[in-house]
Amino acid sequence: MNYTFTLRTVFPYLGGLVAAAEMTLTLSVLAILISLVIGAAVAVMRRSRLRVVRFAGAAYVEVMRNTPLLVTLYIVYFAAPAIGIRLSSFTAALLGLSLNAAGYMAEIIRAGLIAVPGGQFEAATAQGMTMGQMFRHIIFPQVFRTIYAPLGNQFIAVILASSLASAVAVEEVTSWMETVGANSFRFFETFVVAAVVYVVLCQTINLARLQIGRMLFRQPEARR
């Protein structure tokens, strides 16, 4: 074993790493936001009075959760040109990631909605609240509380999943590792550096989540 671990060998590539880390973060944040919107819509669909709509919502969730993200990415990436839309690598990756994450997000939001007892809707209605008032003052604060922790997990899951964007030629952290490793033959170093970037991103989110959670939900939980 004549391989010596020398981090210095990857120093020349660190400029590219910053851009790559920014790409990973941008992709993940946007995907979370988009999947939040789609997921909320799907979660509401699953509570519809119409059976067809409920089924469509459930089908979306099951399809997304039971097909590999990589396949979703390829389908978006290759299908768009076939129907005459030109998508950049970034847009295709963002779309695929968002569509896939929305399947998980819908379940998180659905669980949050289920956790609000029916009596809450009734009490708010009986007090004369409109749908908008009820959502803003009664439903949203309670749902947000329930989904807050899983939302953080989902954020981390999306960051890790965004590594697959390298497969459709997005230049994020994983593709940085692959290219720099191939160019310099220093795969161990690039692996360690990339791993550290991911760990730092994930753990930062984790800690921020705990800290913000403590600030937001200071009220005591316990029954006296």
């Binding site: 007892p117 009596g119 809450q120 009734e122 009490a123 009986a126 007090q127």
Partner: peptide, 15 residues
């Protein structure tokens, strides 16, 4: 509804 006050069996306070 604004002129009727209702009290529920399960209280339904906003937690």
């Amino acid at each position: 509804r604004m002129r009727i006050g209702m009290i529920f069996q399960q209280f339904n306070l906003y937690p």
